Computed example of a mutant assay.
Amino acid sequence: MSSIIFFDIDGTLVTEDERAIIPDSTREAIKKTREKGNITFINSGRTAFNISPRVKELGFDGYICGCGTYIEYNGDVILSSTIEKKKCREIAELMRECNVTPVYEHSEGYFFDDKAPMTDGLKYFMEVFVDSGIDVTGRVEDNNFGFDKFVIWVNPKSDMEKFRKEIGKDFSIIDRGDGFFENVPLGFSKATGIQHILNKLNIPIENAYAIGDSANDLPMLEAVPNSIAMGGAEVIYPYVSYITTPIEENGIANALSHFGLI
């Protein structure tokens, strides 16, 4: 029976720096494992529109995006969860009251709030988006405003007590460090995305593999018995079954070779 492999993007498939290198060995390894009949999936916190063509060109059978809020397989959307419009408006108003800086993430685009404080984090994100050709014109006032998940940056004047109390009712609040928080609707995660696909494709859990490089990959890594940490990702070493070499030292190829997937 075919195996299925779930890949994180940044720091796993693509170097997490301005070079954004995809090693040739990674390209070849993904090609070989698919030729062997194995199934490959992206599993990312990024929403669907923000999976770059360079990543897609590697060759994937499907995509789990937005921390499990969107799933695509063989070109068909099989799950898409967007928060109800009225609720989106209420959350946007609440974020203003909490004095935090949000970016609202939809499967088809991003939305920003010009009334929110500008932060170094947001400034950097927008510069990266512009350099990548991503549209940054969406605003909360737009008629089509809506989102699947959202992130925030905090500042010394942010009301985090109110934020946690209200947002915690409906979202998992993930502390990404340095005052940056990712907020995912309850019931969705990289792990739920994996389970949805395994059930749909009738693949046993022992044939599932996941590869990541950071703490936000833990739900994905802990959802499968064959979990792989990229070399250099010491923070997740205690939670995985195999540690491969760093990304630029044939990390993906070595991992797939170790498990007989190529």
Results as ranks from 00 to 15, higher is better:
residue 204 P to Q: 03
residue 146 G to M: 05
residue 147 F to L: 04
residue 240 V to C: 07
residue 144 N to R: 11
residue 209 Y to L: 09
residue 225 P to G: 06
residue 225 P to T: 05
residue 187 G to K: 08
residue 204 P to S: 13
residue 188 F to I: 00
residue 206 E to S: 12
residue 149 K to G: 01
residue 159 D to I: 06
residue 187 G to E: 05
residue 199 N to D: 14
residue 220 M to W: 01
residue 206 E to I: 06
residue 153 W to R: 07
residue 150 F to W: 11
residue 220 M to Y: 01
residue 152 I to D: 06
residue 160 M to N: 03
residue 216 N to C: 05
residue 240 V to R: 10
residue 204 P to Y: 03
residue 226 N to W: 02
residue 207 N to K: 15
residue 225 P to W: 01
residue 171 F to L: 10
residue 161 E to I: 13
residue 151 V to G: 05
residue 150 F to Q: 09
residue 185 P to M: 11
residue 189 S to V: 12
residue 192 T to K: 11
residue 183 N to I: 03
residue 240 V to Q: 07
residue 193 G to F: 12
residue 164 R to M: 05
residue 178 D to C: 11
residue 148 D to G: 03
residue 193 G to A: 13
residue 240 V to K: 09
residue 192 T to G: 04
residue 147 F to D: 03
residue 176 R to G: 02
residue 178 D to N: 14
residue 224 V to I: 12
residue 199 N to F: 00
residue 150 F to H: 08
residue 209 Y to F: 15
residue 220 M to F: 02
residue 190 K to W: 08
residue 186 L to F: 08
residue 146 G to W: 00
residue 168 G to I: 11
residue 200 K to M: 10
residue 197 I to S: 13
residue 148 D to E: 13
residue 180 F to A: 14
residue 155 N to P: 00
residue 194 I to M: 03
residue 151 V to H: 10
residue 162 K to W: 12
residue 186 L to E: 02
residue 168 G to L: 09
residue 177 G to P: 09
residue 148 D to W: 02
residue 212 G to R: 11
residue 222 E to L: 14
residue 143 N to P: 02
residue 154 V to T: 15
residue 177 G to A: 10
residue 186 L to A: 01
residue 169 K to C: 04
residue 165 K to S: 13
residue 220 M to N: 02
residue 245 T to F: 08
residue 221 L to R: 04
residue 226 N to P: 10
residue 211 I to M: 15
residue 153 W to Y: 12
residue 235 V to T: 13
residue 198 L to C: 11
residue 178 D to G: 05
residue 153 W to C: 12
residue 206 E to T: 11
residue 143 N to R: 11
residue 204 P to R: 07
residue 190 K to E: 04
residue 206 E to V: 08
residue 169 K to T: 08
residue 177 G to R: 04
residue 146 G to L: 00
residue 198 L to H: 10
residue 228 I to W: 06
residue 144 N to D: 15
residue 168 G to Y: 03
residue 245 T to C: 05
residue 173 I to D: 11
residue 217 D to F: 09
residue 208 A to F: 05
residue 145 F to P: 04
residue 201 L to Y: 14
residue 166 E to M: 09
residue 198 L to T: 10
residue 144 N to W: 00
residue 174 I to R: 08
residue 157 K to M: 04
